[in-house]
Write a protein that binds this DNA or RNA. Structure first.
Lengths: 228, 228
DNA sequence: ATCATTGGTGATCAGGCGATAGACTGACGG
DNA sequence: CCGTCAGTCTATCGCCTGATCACCAATGAT
């Protein structure tokens, strides 16, 4: 691949980049743009930010909607490092450590203004990809967390956690997620130390889980009906 | 042009409503409309839904933006029943019961598609009213919750909880909030029984809080720096 | 040097937007 | 019965939007 390091623009001497590279660059910048403006943002303003004219966009993408779809794809799929499942299930390490590391890297990946805004915008549009992502979180992360928690406190590990258990994990997950929303979307003051927030949240969750697993029967209840 | 005899007026007998009533009706319907379409929704489509023509909106509101501002005001201020603070602080009742009741009524108020969508849309716009709301939740609810938790486990009740404690309460609050987002925005399957979700989340939180208050010193640390 | 290919542009279209102007309708106090 | 005035309409303005087209410019294989 002929890598060019020449500074952008300003010089006609600039070498022509490969179509694929250019396209990727467009998608990346478009992601930034739409994350700020929402998907109602205009193609002219987008083109201005890219330093090109508006009709050029239509040489690379058939329509604005197709461009937006590519934005979704990269945003949702890029941060999907799938070492997560193995990390969560590696019982040679203390569960607390595993969870700390997992939520550390997971939030490193998604706690950006760009990612969170695209995620919320697409959620508000009711897109399938959003529901797919939520289902993925449930199956790949929360189910695993519950299983490890049950193992940790000596409960039998079922194949499928109950809906109530999953919901418990969702409250943890959503609570951590909401930290990012408060910081990067609402731009409210938050506790500076993200790792401490995660660590504290996990301490409470693990201690609470352990406690209720001793004194309560509901964890062992049959799967509860869910509605969608 | 031919003068059109207006075919409307299915019920000529219909009494003319007071301007104020009509205005309120417009705002209410506009809230529904914008919650679905986002604030990019057009005035023509809105008027169609109201059963009137588009220019009429401008007799009631100087501009689309003014209408939107009124939508914000009603959405944010309507569900503010301020019995909350007293409810949370009423030490004649068990803390768990108070929290259950509080989160029961609080979520009854905000877990609607309409409220949540307007809330998220306004958050994405970065409006001040959103930050104001978040600050209000922190001061009126979370601070109170932490204070009661400290009292419950026998810790000295400071005037101002530490930032780390508030963050802990935010994880609980955000976790519960996210249930509503998953159900009404993402329309994902959730545990049917909202009260059970709340009850379980509180059980874990209270047990966890109690536990870490015994074994950890961080709760007594000096207030931690926050950034905004 | 030639010439097809690709990158890029200005002009423009049809349609939608928020907002305004002006005329008609009908309820109501005198 | 009349005059007033709010409620509502049709028609329209200027602007912005996504998209298209014809055309020029740079590239690179021959």
């Amino acid at each position: 691949m002929t890598r060019k390091v020449s500074p952008k623009r300003a010089d006609a001497k600039q070498r022509r980049r490969s179509p694929d590279e250019r396209r990727k660059e467009f998608v990346a910048k478009a992601t930034e743009f739409f994350s700020e403006e929402g998907f109602g943002g205009g193609t002219r303003a987008l083109a201005r930010r890219l330093g090109v004219t508006q009709p050029l966009l239509y040489r690379y993408f058939p329509s604005k909607d197709d461009l937006i779809k590519e934005v979704y794809r990269t945003v949702y799929l890029d941060p999907l490092e799938t070492g997560w499942e193995k990390l969560l299930s590696d019982r040679s390490r203390p569960l607390r450590d595993r969870l700390r590391e997992f939520y550390g890297t997971y939030t490193d990946a998604i706690f950006t203004r760009k990612w969170l805004r695209i995620y919320l915008y697409s959620g508000l549009k009711g897109l399938d990809i959003n529901r797919w992502y939520v289902g993925m979180v449930k199956d790949k992360i929360l189910t695993r967390i519950i299983r490890e928690c049950r193992h940790e406190v000596g409960l039998p590990v079922q194949n499928k956690p109950t809906a109530a258990e999953i919901e418990l994990a969702w409250v943890l997950h959503g609570g951590i997620f909401y930290y990012g929303v408060r910081k990067y979307i609402y731009e409210s003051p938050v506790l500076e130390d993200k790792e401490q927030m995660i660590s504290d949240a996990l301490d409470v969750f693990l201690a609470g889980f352990e406690r209720i697993s001793e004194t309560s029967a509901y964890i062992r209840r049959a799967p509860t009906k869910v509605v969608g």
